[in-house]
Design a protein around this nucleic acid. Structure first.
Lengths: 220, 220
DNA sequence: TTATATTTTTAGTTTTGTCTAAATTTTATT
DNA sequence: AATAAAATTTAGACAAAACTAAAAATATAA
């Protein structure tokens, strides 16, 4: 099925919210999309008419399977374009989101298939988020937050959940990027901060707030 | 200034038409854009309000300098994206136009600057059309149609003005592409067809219709 | 130079996506 | 359970970009 840019944006936001909460409600979607609840209601009717949404008025709503597939198509495009922008055009990762928000609505499927091949079929975008394949299948990586990791296990940074410029700045300072190997040496109960050792660097201390947003997986 | 996708499409079409005819009229723009004269009139008012168009009602119209710059920005984006699609994603050149029609409206200037660098600052797109630089300057190439070339001069194919799939098919058959070197051996007055010799290939005959659409420049 | 044809514009509608303000339904609180 | 608060939807409006049909201006031709 074909969707307008606006429909695609709603679909994507509903998808992200329902991952968190199961059922989505009008006000939270309006807040997420920086629009008004009345506009959300209008769009919900259109999406229901297109048979991709379970929606009963006043009740809450969520995407059905067709809707989820539509959402994953957009997510896939978004993340492939982000990968392109960072890996090929050398953008900083905190600059690519708004550009990928536009590129994700380019309609050609052949474009995306060729782009994917050109990029070498990446599984994760520059923020470590998984890139769904053309069937909507999402690669899984057993990852956990740095903040609840046992001591002295070597791990690899696999994603960062806070993707702001401020966070990027911090991580640059600590020389932490996706793929960086490190271990936790010690945990300070006072404020939850961690002493960590990044491979080939001196030990350093990061706050609990940073640690919570850094996700890692064990090396095998 | 910022333009909507629709405005950009009108600006681009006006630009192309006024290159041919100087002043543009409502009906020809409507024909070019596959829309209705009334729709054109509506848009002309908007473009005049944005001060990029010389327009007096019932008189004809053309872009002023600001309008031409806006047009060249879009043309630049279009041709850089076409180059990307052909050179990086391996599309056939007759498939890229509709995709570039979408990509040309992505707004980020930084994206285009980085794309240009990534592509190696190309001067001509895959159809041989010149790519304006960021200031709107267009590279010129002294080119002429194969159909009015003197005999036995070695030339290089620099652009093809008919960019249909049918034309591509013909040129593929003759093993003629941009950059191909060839010379005209003989001209048949009966139907204007040419005997040509493509470098490293046997001589062959092409119709006047093909020859008229193939542009070349002299080697130095 | 009238009359006719062509071109262009206006007037009024439609669709998509948004909005505000008011009404309705649901949820929470006493 | 009645009332207040919150969430949601409806009603009506607007802007952008298109359309049709009719009117107006210009160009052409007898």
């Amino acid at each position: 099925m074909n969707f307008t840019t606006s429909e695609e944006n709603y679909i994507k936001s509903i998808y992200h919210l329902q991952q968190e909460t199961g059922l989505v409600n009008t006000n939270s979607l309006a807040a997420e999309m920086n629009t008004r609840p009345a506009s959300v209601t209008d769009m919900l009717k259109k999406l229901k008419a297109k048979k991709i949404l379970q929606y009963e008025r006043y009740k809450g709503f969520k995407l059905n399977d067709a809707g989820k597939k539509a959402a994953l198509d957009v997510v896939r495009k978004h993340r492939l374009w982000e990968y392109f922008l960072v890996e090929k055009l050398n953008f900083d990762w905190d600059k690519v989101h708004p550009i990928a928000e536009e590129l994700e609505h380019i309609s050609s499927n052949e474009l995306i298939q060729r782009l994917e091949i050109f990029l070498g079929n990446p599984s994760f975008d520059p923020h470590g988020d998984p890139i769904p394949d053309r069937n909507g299948k999402i690669p899984v990586l057993n990852q956990q937050s740095l903040s609840d990791l046992p001591l002295r296990k070597t791990v690899t940074v696999s994603s960062v959940s806070n993707q702001t410029a401020q966070m990027l700045e911090m991580l640059k300072h600590y020389k932490i990027a996706l793929g960086t190997q490190l271990m936790v040496l010690r945990k300070f109960d006072f404020d939850g901060s961690l002493e960590i050792k990044v491979l080939k660097q001196a030990a350093c201390i990061i706050s609990e707030q940073v640690a919570k947003n850094v996700f890692v997986h064990y090396d095998q």
